[in-house]
């Protein structure tokens, strides 16, 4: 064909087809998307510290392994209470003159999704130790350690945060391990990662590909229709208190033989799970794990019963009804 024997005509046709399709599938949707979406009214803008922390997050390429997107499929339910929507990202603009927008949605989940990590794991002490040496808190983790975000000093000066590191992970370190500003910023950023609630009356999109919920019978306490306590423990508690229930010395208290776990004072126990705890100097502050993760009375019961009957603990188990009563009471006082 003569038409294609003319190099100008041929290459202009090819280029025009490509550019035309580019406009349709990339440029117009992108422009449309950024024009028609605004941040949610409930979204909290990044604080100055969290903003600096985000710079660190970008610089260290954390997005290589951590996504920040909750897909509208059932398996992503663990990463957030609702699927992500365009408005969640609408407030993110160009980082600076040199660098592009960082929505940090990511394409690899070598590590967990971080969309809601501020809610799921809000503890500063845990996050700092985890950054210093992930394997100190999560034995099987393959995350890189970031010791250069910390320094070793002889004295802790006011305003500084010391990180209590188990002996096995501080070989060759003489002195106290102090978090540098960069580490604190990074943790502030991680703590700020929370899914914003939709405006009142707006129902979130549904999670697709639903899995049939089958309550697992927990043979140990004999009560049927309770979720799997061990799995819930691993998901919600083990990163601090460890899978063996022994905690980490100087940071997270053991549950094995713990007086709170063993006693019959269920009210204190449920309160700690739901609202957090900061009564003991020698340990880090515990976050409101139960409330943050929206644990149901059945789930709390399953966790309590698992803790009461594991690692040699041998205390009387409880029923969901008892726990529910206390949780209702906690909710009531919180509302007042």
């Amino acid at each position: 064909m003569n038409f294609f024997d003319n190099h100008k005509k041929l290459f202009i046709t090819a280029l025009a087809s490509f550019v035309g399709l580019t406009v349709i599938v990339a440029i117009l949707p992108a422009m449309n998307n950024q024009k028609n979406n605004a941040p949610l009214p409930n979204a909290v803008p990044l604080s100055e510290e969290a903003f600096l922390g985000k710079q660190s997050f970008i610089a260290n390429g954390c997005v290589s392994c951590h996504t920040q997107q909750v897909r509208n499929v059932d398996m992503d339910k663990v990463w957030g209470s609702r699927p992500g929507i365009a408005a969640d990202y609408a407030g993110i603009t160009r980082t600076d003159f040199w660098r592009n927008t960082a929505t940090l949605m990511g394409t690899e989940r070598t590590g967990p999704d971080l969309t809601n990590v501020g809610t799921r794991q809000g503890s500063q002490a845990w996050n700092l130790l985890h950054l210093y040496q992930p394997r100190a808190v999560v034995e099987k983790s393959i995350m890189p350690a970031y010791p250069w975000l910390f320094e070793v000093k002889n004295e802790v000066e006011p305003g500084e945060v010391e990180v209590i590191v188990p002996d096995a992970f501080r070989k060759g370190v003489n002195g106290k391990i102090i978090a540098k500003k960069e580490a604190l910023y990074l943790v502030a950023y991680l703590q700020s990662l929370k899914q914003a609630a939709l405006p009142d009356g707006k129902a979130p999109a549904e999670f697709l590909y639903k899995k049939e919920q089958k309550p697992v019978a927990d043979g140990k306490n004999g009560s049927l229709n309770l979720p799997d306590g061990e799995m819930l423990y691993v998901k919600n508690c083990a990163s601090c208190h460890q899978a063996n229930g022994e905690g980490l010395k100087g940071a997270f208290p053991p549950l094995k033989g713990s007086p709170v776990v063993m006693s019959d004072d269920l009210e204190l126990y449920v309160k700690i799970i739901m609202l957090g705890y900061d009564a003991r100097e020698e340990f880090a502050v515990m976050n409101a794990v139960g409330t943050d993760n929206k644990l149901s009375p059945e789930e709390v019961t399953a966790i309590i019963n698992y803790e009461k009957t594991s690692w040699g603990n041998n205390a009387k188990t409880v029923t969901p009804e008892e726990v529910k009563k206390i949780m209702d009471f906690i909710k009531l006082t919180a509302e007042k």
Binding site: T22, A26, I27, P29, A30, M31, N33, Q34, N37, A86, Y89, A90, G91, I92, T93, R94, N100, T101, A102, T103, M105
Partner: peptide
Amino acid sequence: VVAYWPSLQTGLGETII
């Protein structure tokens, strides 16, 4: 050019690009 063009990159625009 499309990938580095700054005015297409706000929010999810960045992801689409």
